[in-house]
Design a binder for these strands. Structure first.
Lengths: 162, 162
DNA sequence: TATTGTTATACTCTATAACTATA
DNA sequence: TATAGTTATAGAGTATAACAATA
């Protein structure tokens, strides 16, 4: 189960192909989606397939690496997931031995999620693979342009640290 | 059927909330996903809910507006959809009276997809709503920054017209 | 034999509602 | 009563395989 998908060949033809983008050229959501297709292929190659991690699982791993013992509620908020969705996600990764849930001492309604040593090892491996992936992904931009892109995306959502 | 979803309130708390993004701060795919959440909310408010159009349906409408009589194969390529997925999408929109498929004279395997007058009217309405949406969405950026963001996203995927 | 589009099928993603337990 | 997490259920999205017609 969870068979790794097909090996996904190299950079395919630009998504738009022969057609005129028309009004979509000025629609940010569409351009973000196009870029996400591109990023998704790089992700599958570098992380998804070799490490058998879905994008959300990878994000969760990175988030826990930086925020050990977080409550599910905060994780769901950060990943923009519904509470039930996060629960099944945690179930799956706990069953895989990557993380563990324990009861909180302060508020006994909530829980604390932590990476197991195995989860930490995978997180480090994934973080390393991510660095390689980023290089390949951003190869068409100068370092300055890459940094600018990150800053603009962040600013767009009203998040600090520009 | 196709009941419009909940009215989705104003700009909610930044997705990351209280947690540290950790390594994700440098992962383009994650930052694109965060921005897409933001864009998706604006889309639902301005277009999705009022016009009862899913993102793909909106994109298809815009694409047909600029490329009347396109073949399904080209549409699928431009939208990064599988052929079966596009078929059901076209079925749904044809049933709704927005477009029509006809046989091609040159190659009788393929077909030509065209907007009906009703589809054209909705496309124009959607394009107008998109312009309003973009203004709200890009309000945190200067016009120059907005243009730069579009250019960088395009360059990232190796698409021309920078 | 290769290609276009379609149908059938199944699996993943994601949301809502209902339930349990704490506060 | 409000909140955190879970369970159950359903629906939307998406992929693969099998098929039909045409090239």
């Amino acid at each position: 189960m969870t068979a790794p998908p097909a090996p996904d060949d190299d950079d395919r033809a630009p998504a738009t192909g022969l057609l005129d983008e028309g009004a979509l050229a000025q629609v940010l959501g569409y351009q973000l989606a196009q870029a996400s297709v591109h990023a998704g292929r790089a992700y599958a190659r570098s992380i998804g397939t070799p490490l058998e991690l879905r994008p959300v699982e990878f994000s969760l791993l990175m988030l826990l690496q930086a925020n050990d013992g977080s409550a599910p509620k905060h994780l769901a908020g950060a990943l923009a997931l519904s509470a039930p969705h996060l629960t099944v996600l945690l179930d799956r990764m706990e069953e895989r031995g990557l993380l563990a849930r324990s009861d909180s001492a302060q508020d006994r309604r909530t829980r604390e999620v932590r990476l197991t040593p195995q989860g930490q090892a995978l997180a480090e491996q994934a973080a390393e693979a991510a660095r390689t992936m980023e290089q390949a992904l951003l190869q068409r931009l100068t370092p300055g342009e890459g940094a600018l892109l990150f800053e603009l995306l962040r600013k767009l959502c009203g998040r600090p640290r520009c």
